[in-house]
């Protein structure tokens, strides 16, 4: 596993000219992503832009047809080291329904080799307000609670690199706030896929906008604002940019 100084020498997430095709559809078309360690980046794009596919490729759950992907300098799809560095929250993640909330966290935490697992679980449960559900099977909890458990499972090992696909899905407003607060305290590299601008504004500093599997804009969040009129909402700016590529 890479130590922190070693990681800082690399781009934490690097995907060079990647292409991924599903049948006749080119989901990702020559996309390059280079995210330095410590960055917090939002991946924006319309439905079907390829955001989730990008994350799956970065996590190594899929292989690109062309191009190379490295995580902390390790090949994404074949390296155990890359997987150790990563924490990934899939869209619509479902913890194991026949296990309780606590067992889910114990399970993933134990396999991840988390030291002092009990106190880590205690911290996450407290931050996410899951105390009342510790002994409840996932089968019996709400979708929002499942999402909170999924978030906890994805970061239980305090990953150096966090990839999240719509992390605030299904969460009520207080829970959203809890998650945002907790993630903000983490000293990790973040790539968060979302189509909700407020999430991007609260959790990230940089923005990558993709459409049809290609990058259409990249830069700081405040630079994005400067592309529009002074009173123009950022959503309107992003929407205009996306429309231009349709």
């Amino acid at each position: 596993m890479l130590t922190e100084p070693e990681i800082l020498d690399h781009s934490c997430i690097r995907a060079m000219n990647i292409t991924k095709t599903f049948g006749q559809t080119k989901a990702i078309n020559g996309l390059t992503v280079d995210i330095s360690c410590g960055s917090r980046v939002a991946l924006l794009g319309p439905n079907g832009a390829g955001k989730s596919t990008v994350l799956k490729l970065l996590v190594g759950l899929m292989k690109p047809d062309f191009g190379e992907i490295t995580i902390g300098g390790y090949p994404a799809d074949s390296s155990m080291e890359a997987k150790k560095l990563l924490g990934y929250l899939p869209e619509d993640a479902t913890p194991y329904i026949s296990l309780t909330v606590k067992e889910n966290l114990q399970y993933v935490g134990a396999i991840r080799g988390v030291r002092d697992l009990d106190s880590r679980i205690e911290y996450l449960v407290s931050e996410l307000g899951l105390q009342d559900f510790l002994s409840t099977k996932i089968l019996k909890v709400s979708r929002g609670t499942r999402q909170k458990v999924s978030v906890a499972m994805s970061i239980i090992h305090s990953p150096k690199i966090v990839l999240m696909d719509e992390p605030l899905n299904y969460l009520d407003i207080p829970s959203q706030e809890n998650v945002i607060q907790m993630l903000s305290q983490m000293n990790s590299t973040f790539l968060i896929s979302t189509h909700i601008m407020s999430i991007a504004e609260r959790l990230t500093d940089d923005v990558i906008i993709i459409a049809r599997g290609q990058e259409i804009w990249k830069g700081k969040r405040n630079e994005l604002r400067s592309l529009g009129h002074s009173d123009e909402p950022v959503e309107a700016i992003v929407s205009r940019m996306m429309k231009n590529v349709r």
């Binding site: 996590v59 759950l61 155990m80 997987k83 899939p90």
Partner: peptide, 20 residues
């Protein structure tokens, strides 16, 4: 399964864990 024996592989936490 779109070429993958793991349906919805991204949603199964085990597959992203560092287990060979």
């Amino acid at each position: 399964g779109s070429g993958s024996p793991f349906s919805k592989s991204d949603q199964d936490f085990l597959l992203q864990l560092p287990i060979p």
